[in-house]
Simulated assay, not measured.
Amino acid sequence: MRITIIAGARPNFMKIAPIIDAIINKKQQGHDITYQLVHTGQHYDKNLSGTFFEELNIPFPDANLEVKSGTQSEQTAAIMIGFEKYLEESPCDLVVVVGDVTSTMACAIVAKKAGVDVAHIEAGIRSGDMNMPEEINRIVTDSLTDYFFTTSTYANENLKKVGVSDDKIFFTGNVMIDTLLKNESRLVKPPVWNALKLEAKKYMVMTLHRPSNVDEEHQLKGLITQLVDLGKDFPIVFPVHPRTKKLLEGLNLNFDNLHFIEPLGYLHFNYLVKNAFAVLTDSGGITEETTVMNVPCITLRDSTERPETCEIGTNVLVGSDSDKIKEAFSVLLSGNWKKGSIPKLWDGHAAERIVDAIADIYNL
């Protein structure tokens, strides 16, 4: 059996690494299973993609579609054209897509039109916010998927509500946590640690990239100004996404405790997260990592596709509501942040369960 694995953006790389390891292990046990890795090139900045292959020991891709930047439609079209050609030249039995980025949706469409089965890892998550491009990607991908691998019971229920049968849903856990647990002992202190004289649990990490937060200059400036003011007693380290960097230019956000830095690789970034007093973010994936590492997380979004990080973990949603942000900081700075726990099956073995299920499905 030949599997084609799709990766295109930073969150994908963390998710495919344990899948590849599990496939290799399965093959070594005598099962007829091989894989090919396709990098769409959706993220092309070295710190957003290149370093992940090195740090997480991911084999060099069999193909890079080199799509790079563009509008949502331009990227989708370019990925579909490139992947269709690749699939014609290198046929397979199953296409595995992960997460909810543009590459996930585009390659799922191409695979189904080519008559190839699709497996979606991280299927069924929903925010309910159709203004998020990722939500559209999730819905379209899951409408085409043959086998659904989920991270939570919430995702299972979302799929059942739209008519997915139980025999197509596999609750296997969270592959991104596989990667985190495997590499936690390898996390590396980034150069910025000494440059800014950081101390464990005495600084915050900020990430912002959602269009709802960064597309409008006045909104972005007001949000950052409030966060920096409320966290004035802490250095705030802000690795800036290339998309956000363009928007920040000219806003004159000069604060003594706010430090803009270049994007970091996986081992450097998660070292910062693990040792932070708190994380301020609009990312979904980071809320999963903070939950496992027991780091307080304030999420600057009105909705989340990962409700378990709020109901079970260390995450709180505040959106861009000034009062909710103040309230969250009040709890945080008083030392009364909730004590989270780790969701079921976030144990480092999700990828093994996924590959075992695939082997059973195809009688390998």
Results as ranks from 00 to 15, higher is better:
Lys245Cys: 10
Gly250Asn: 13
Asp117Tyr: 13
Ser103Pro: 03
Val110Ser: 11
Thr207Glu: 06
Asp282Tyr: 02
Phe277Pro: 00
Arg126Gln: 04
Lys161Ala: 03
Leu198Gln: 02
Ala77Ile: 09
Val355Asp: 00
Ile358Glu: 01
Asp32Phe: 07
Phe60Gly: 09
Val101Glu: 05
Thr207Pro: 00
Ala106Ser: 13
Ser334Cys: 09
Glu216Arg: 09
Leu345Thr: 01
Ala195Leu: 14
His209Cys: 08
Leu65Gly: 01
Gly8Asn: 08
Glu289Asn: 07
Asn336Leu: 12
Thr71Ile: 07
Asp117Thr: 10
Pro191Leu: 11
Val228Leu: 12
Lys274Asp: 01
Ala17Met: 07
Glu88Phe: 14
His218Phe: 14
Asn131Ile: 08
Tyr147Lys: 04
Glu66Trp: 13
Phe13Tyr: 12
Pro263Ser: 11
Glu262Tyr: 07
Arg301Val: 04
Thr314Leu: 08
Gly30Asp: 10
Thr225His: 10
Met176Gln: 09
Asn254Gly: 12
Val116Asp: 11
His209Asn: 10
Glu288Trp: 03
Lys113Gly: 06
Ile354Leu: 10
Leu317Asp: 06
Glu54Met: 09
Val101Gln: 05
Gly319Phe: 07
Val116Ala: 13
Ile33Gly: 01
Ser90Ala: 15
Ala123Ser: 10
Asp256Lys: 15
Gly30Asn: 09
Val96Gly: 02
Pro239Gly: 06
Ile325Asp: 04
Asn183Arg: 10
Arg301Leu: 05
Asp117Ser: 15
Phe329Tyr: 09
Phe269Leu: 11
Phe60Arg: 14
Asn363Asp: 13
Thr207Lys: 03
Ala200Lys: 13
Lys246Ile: 15
Asn12Asp: 14
Asp146Phe: 05
Phe234Trp: 05
Ile6Trp: 07
Gln72His: 14
Lys339Ala: 09
His349Thr: 11
His268Thr: 01
Asn158Tyr: 00
Val175Pro: 00
Phe53Lys: 09
Val118Thr: 07
Asn194Trp: 04
Ile3Glu: 06
Gly8Met: 11
Lys339Arg: 14
Lys201Trp: 07
Ile261Asp: 04
Val292Tyr: 00
Tyr147Asp: 01
Glu289Ile: 08
Val237Trp: 00
Phe260Gln: 14
Arg2His: 14
Ala22Lys: 02
Thr314Tyr: 05
Met14Trp: 04
Asn25Val: 06
Leu65Tyr: 03
Thr151Trp: 01
Asn270Trp: 02
Leu332Trp: 03
Ser165Tyr: 05
Val67Ala: 07
Thr281Cys: 07
Ile58Met: 10
Ala328Cys: 08
Ile325Trp: 05
Pro18His: 10
Ile312Glu: 05
Glu352Ser: 06
